[in-house]
Write a protein that binds this DNA or RNA. Structure first.
Lengths: 195, 195
DNA sequence: GTCTATACTTAGATAGAC
DNA sequence: GTCTATCTAAGTATAGAC
């Protein structure tokens, strides 16, 4: 059954995502991916324009889902409850199904993310979520606060080093901390005009 | 004066750190570094064993300084004031002089950091600072809290996107948020035994 | 002690045969 | 849809000029 055709493209995506996440994008050669699938490098080039293009292919869907989230969030009122709801949705995207594997790839490949077009887009979406969370006309303190709330979700994967902590627990802990940060967005800060 | 000897090694370090940070470690070729200095690739190999070795050379000093910080922090009492003092020292290392340029390199090169030996060491030190901040026998919530406090320092560089915000302001804002997180380490949490 | 010339290996990528 | 062959550029290594 190894020679079954048609799914080669998705098998490439699957193996590539796995290797890119485990050992890094740059450290993973196309030869390695090809060998794992029992084909040659050139075969990969039939299915994808370039190495970058493999990444783009499994990132596009994530971008779309984040765009939907941003649109939805931007239409909510700018209160604490809405910020919580937005972050909760973000966490669900992050921890859910295939979402998590792609997000982990980005977590593991921050450098590459800066160079790749899909990485730029992903980074842009992250900052936009932060912008929505920070609300209109935010103080720098609010900006930092909103961004760190998002990063609490990401950080729950590597900051909690006991492997026995489940993904559900990580998500729960991340949200608790993120809510604590978000609930004080717009609150008086040192150096902020009180009026 | 281009041929002035002796400082070639440090000029390599300087140019390499600059290019690695700007465009990423993998995207920067040795040829590019060599050309910028008006020498050949082989000349680099006289001064450094490998590309990795260039990174190691300017990271070693940072590791030492972080080790000193960790030793000092571990000898402090485990109260909120000491945690603040530890994080303040961390921020000073992060924002200070050459400290910042190397830290920025790591910020920009998270993937590489996982593969390089010096990167592993640096990552290890970060987590150790988080361990000290989280205190003895920490809850997962405390672990996440401590790690995010450190990341507030890092995040102040990219989360605050107005370039006119000075480094001093970033440091100040990062500390305010980090202190808010740290002051609640050890405090009662949902799901934590109160006794 | 400092560097150049040269060459080796492997990477990503392309053209064309089957 | 996949393979063979080949290209360019990367990191690496060494012999030897000065």
């Amino acid at each position: 059954m190894t020679g079954s055709t048609g799914d080669t493209r998705s098998r490439i995506q699957q193996v590539a995502l796995e290797l890119f996440t485990e050992q890094g994008y740059e450290k993973t050669s196309l030869r390695e991916i090809a060998e794992r699938l029992g084909v040659t490098k050139a075969a990969l080039y039939y299915h994808f324009k370039s190495k970058d293009d493999i990444v783009d292919s499994f990132v596009a869907d994530r971008i779309n889902r984040l765009d939907q989230l941003i649109d939805w969030a931007a239409r909510q009122p700018t209160d604490a409850a809405s910020r919580r709801a937005t972050l909760r949705r973000y966490a669900e995207e992050f921890f859910g199904n295939e979402g998590q594997s792609v997000m982990r790839f980005f977590e593991q490949n921050q450098t590459v993310v800066k160079q790749l077009s899909s990485g730029q887009m992903m980074r842009d979406r992250l900052l936009r979520v932060a912008d929505v969370l920070a609300g209109p006309d935010p103080t720098p303190g609010d900006q930092l606060r909103a961004t760190m709330a998002i990063f609490a979700v990401h950080g729950s994967l590597f900051a909690l080093r006991q492997p026995e902590i489940s993904l559900e627990q990580r998500q729960q802990l991340a949200l608790e901390l993120a809510f604590e940060l978000l609930d004080r967005v717009g609150a008086p800060e040192p150096g902020r005009p009180t009026g």
